[in-house]
Design a binder for these strands. Sequence first.
DNA 1: AAGTTCCGCAACCGCCGGTGC
DNA 2: GGCACCGGCGGTTGCGGAACT
Length: 298
Amino acid sequence: MGRSPCCEKAHTNKGAWTKEEDQRLIDYIRVHGEGCWRSLPKAAGLLRCGKSCRLRWINYLRPDLKRGNFTEEEDELIIKLHSLLGNKWSLIAGRLPGRTDNEIKNYWNTHIKRKLINRGVDPHTHQPLNEIAGTATASHLDFRNSSPPPLPVAEISLMKQRINAEYTCNDYTAMVNPKAESVEDANCTSSGTTTEEEPPQLQQRQKQQRQELFDSELNLELSVGLRPFKAEPTLASPANTAESKLQQVPYQLFGTVQSAMVAQAVCLCCHIGFQSSELCRNCQNSNGFYRFYRPFDS
DNA sequence: AAGTTCCGCAACCGCCGGTGC
DNA sequence: GGCACCGGCGGTTGCGGAACT
């Protein structure tokens, strides 16, 4: 017996959304917030699959979405992140305010791939095309014939932790452990143990990748946001381990802002008491908009 | 102007991991 | 441990408009 379908397909609409459907969805989420996508369509009076509603909201209707062309800076950031993370679009999207994974995925496939090829760079491996052709034999780094290139799952996980650790620790460790003076002090990964277990080749590759990333002018917005409508982590929480701290660092720093009509601004560091009650610098982005929100009734 | 091809993007599909029973 | 459910993700599809002939 297979899994039951996520919805009654016989009674659901498919294809493009109408303005009326959009409005129903917006109105419903405005009042009730995100979540429980399965029951949302019925509650909102929509003849749509819950998944479809989720996708429509996340990719199109969310109020914090940035519209318009990608900037050159965004292009370069996507390329750099893709070289580190591969086709982990949601992770990449988490570092591009107002952009969705779907949008980035589409943009990658339609623009950046071509751009890299024009530069003579293989979009899968991020290596020079001619160099790959010459060195591909028997190399575990040869991804030309396989989709998503880069790193094994364990390696991706490690990189994610390190990336998060390195560019969130300034803010985040200061919040969870104000006395910590360094990444290591705060037990914010990058402690020696995992590194010692890595093969030299892996270490060297990661070191190089990190070096490239952090030597660049990458502005990765060193701050922590809240996923909307979720229970917020507290210091007393049993989940307050180094591992969970990293997991709690959301990948979507800006991408989860709810409609301002149902949310109030809250900065995590302010919220948990490491900043004054006034909005700290984390609370506003470069455009002056508030970045952190939570629903009134959460 | 009409037909055809190309391209971009919204939406769908299937799978996976996490969670609760 | 097994099952069902749910949310989320990445890959793929197909529609609609732009570009070309």
